[in-house]
């Protein structure tokens, strides 16, 4: 089973693309290879009838038929890919409606990128709010990340969850996911933000709800609360 709902959605679509890509690619290469071998010239091969000669600009060759067949087939295949894409995007682009009730069953976390680290805030980013350099989340709960930056454009990617968004100064970009397995995963910046861009990675700890709850209580009081 996939490690998150987003990864699950992703792999279904990915496998479709991959399968079609490999099959079509292999087919085209097979045809190409076959033709190259079959029609390879040796000295005894006669020149074709319509061989282009100096002094005559070539006549048209070929029917539009084959090309139309190919375009039609391609359109069908590509439409499958487009619809698949639309379906996935519809599912991941907006925060699930269930999160909008109060009290919300979802967890909303601010993720702030700056050169060269990520900071995660569980209780808003107001004064005194405690920021964490690693991301801990409970499995089985919808987690929403509101991502932004304080300097240049970064990109927050949760590699194994197959989800990412740019961290743009002055904007908040929102992604969400539902983790299904306990484990340690990797968050990394995927947009060049300076010479130390390569250092901007941090772990994501997906924890079982009980362990997460006890961590949360000890580590997330607002200053003065």
């Amino acid at each position: 089973m996939a490690v998150s709902n987003t990864a699950d959605l992703f792999f279904q679509l990915w496998n479709t693309f991959l399968f079609l890509g490999i099959v079509i690619g292999a087919f085209v290469f097979a045809v190409m290879g076959f033709l190259l071998v079959k029609y390879r010239a040796n000295d005894s091969t006669p020149e074709p009838e319509d061989v282009p000669v100096m002094g005559r600009l070539p006549t048209h060759r070929g029917h539009v038929r084959t090309l139309l067949v190919s375009v039609t087939l391609s359109t069908i295949i590509l439409s499958v890919l487009i619809f698949g894409t639309f379906s996935v995007i519809d599912q991941i682009s907006s925060v699930p409606a269930q999160c909008n009730v109060t009290p919300s069953p979802c967890m909303r976390i601010n993720a702030v990128g700056e050169r060269f680290r990520w900071t995660f805030y569980y209780n808003g980013t107001g004064t005194g709010a405690a920021g964490h350099p690693v991301l801990r989340i409970p499995i089985g709960k919808t987690v929403i990340l509101d991502v932004t930056s304080v300097d240049v454009v970064h990109n927050l990617t949760i590699i194994e969850y197959k989800i990412k968004t740019d961290a743009v100064p002055g904007r908040i970009n929102t992604i969400w996911f539902n983790a299904t397995q306990v484990g340690t995963f990797r968050i990394q910046c995927f947009e060049l933000c300076g010479n130390q861009h390569w250092t901007m990675y941090t772990p994501l700890f997906a924890m079982d709800p009980t362990s997460f709850a006890s961590w949360f209580i000890t580590n997330n009081t607002l200053a003065g609360a």
Partner: peptide
């Protein structure tokens, strides 16, 4: 032509906004 075919097919992956959520960058 052969190399362009590989480049072209893999480009279709990148055309999908859904897949781009993994592939970008």
């Amino acid at each position: 032509i052969a190399l362009f075919i590989i480049g072209g097919i893999t480009g279709v992956f990148l055309a999908s906004v859904a897949l781009d959520h993994d592939l970008r960058g």
